[in-house]
Amino acid sequence: MVSLNGSRSAADGTAVPMTPGDLVESALAAVAAGAGEVLVHPRTPCGRESLSPRVMGPLLEALRGAGTGVGARAGTGVPVGVLASVAAEPGPAERLARVRSWAVLPDRAVVRFAEPGAPELAELLLERGVGVDAEVPVGAEPGPLGRFLAWPVRDHARVRLLLELPSADPGWVVGTHRLPPVPLLLFGREGAAWPVLRLAARRGTGARIGVGDVLSLPDGRAARTNAELVAAATRAREDATAGIR
């Protein structure tokens, strides 16, 4: 998965795509470099994250119209996901109302279980036919993981667990065999991004990279594009898996 923009702003440099046109171009290049999924944080023209159908709908249509996620909702193509979070809509009730108002649906949506109202939001997304990526930070307070474990996952095929790890210490995921039988994706941010990606490769789980999570390449050089990060991630995963054969 490539995280196209995350919570970044223009202040983070030219590697961060900001306009709809830049996001489409970045997505296409990242997919060409090997990304199997696209995650985007829709934004208003002034740069504020938004779940408004007037903001999100045109962006999703532009991404799919350019070939990024064509046919993904029918089971083919590259899935396009969004983040449904406090940053875009602070109140739990307001987030639910936004999801109900969507006319153009993403393939998946990230739900942060560290935020209030996460189980209800996840249920509504599933009811609307949107896959759920349950994001849980590991190593902080145990509440988010507890809320996820307490949520009765009824549709394992459309739910995935995204564990955000603070480091590549394998101990963080020792107990994952006790989790519900859903696909697992590991990711880190900033200094943890590349070590965790290599850990994900060794464990055979999904992984995420992109300027939304990290702005530098494994050798410390500044990344110029999401595609450059994806290409470096492909090489890093191949190197990590080669070491365990």
Rank of each mutant, 00 (worst) to 15 (best):
G91E: 14
D22I: 03
W102P: 00
V130H: 00
P45G: 07
G69E: 04
G129H: 02
R108M: 09
L96R: 08
L121E: 04
G81A: 14
A62L: 15
M56F: 11
L124R: 02
L83N: 01
L125K: 01
L51Y: 01
V55N: 02
G146W: 08
G71N: 12
V82N: 01
G69H: 02
V111L: 09
P137F: 13
P137Q: 09
V31H: 04
R147F: 04
G36A: 14
T68W: 00
P79V: 05
W102G: 00
F113N: 09
V110G: 01
G129I: 09
V136G: 05
G47K: 02
P144G: 05
A140D: 10
V136W: 13
A93E: 14
G146R: 15
G34N: 11
A27G: 11
G57W: 11
P42V: 04
A33W: 03
A15K: 08
G146T: 08
D133G: 13
R108T: 11
E61P: 04
P20T: 05
R128A: 04
P137H: 06
A109P: 04
A93C: 06
G57D: 08
L23R: 10
V70M: 12
R100T: 04
A97W: 09
V24F: 04
E49K: 15
E94Q: 12
A84Q: 02
L60Q: 03
E120Q: 15
D133Q: 15
E25F: 02
P137L: 11
V99G: 06
R147V: 13
A150L: 14
A134Y: 02
P90Y: 06
V111C: 03
L105K: 15
G139L: 05
D22H: 12
L83Y: 03
G57M: 07
G139S: 02
M56I: 11
E37C: 07
G131E: 13
A150V: 09
V78N: 08
A87E: 10
A97S: 13
V82K: 00
E89T: 14
P106A: 10
L51E: 02
A88H: 03
E120W: 00
R73Y: 10
S52E: 02
E115M: 14
V16E: 00
G146V: 12
W102L: 08
G139D: 06
V110W: 03
A33Y: 07
V138R: 09
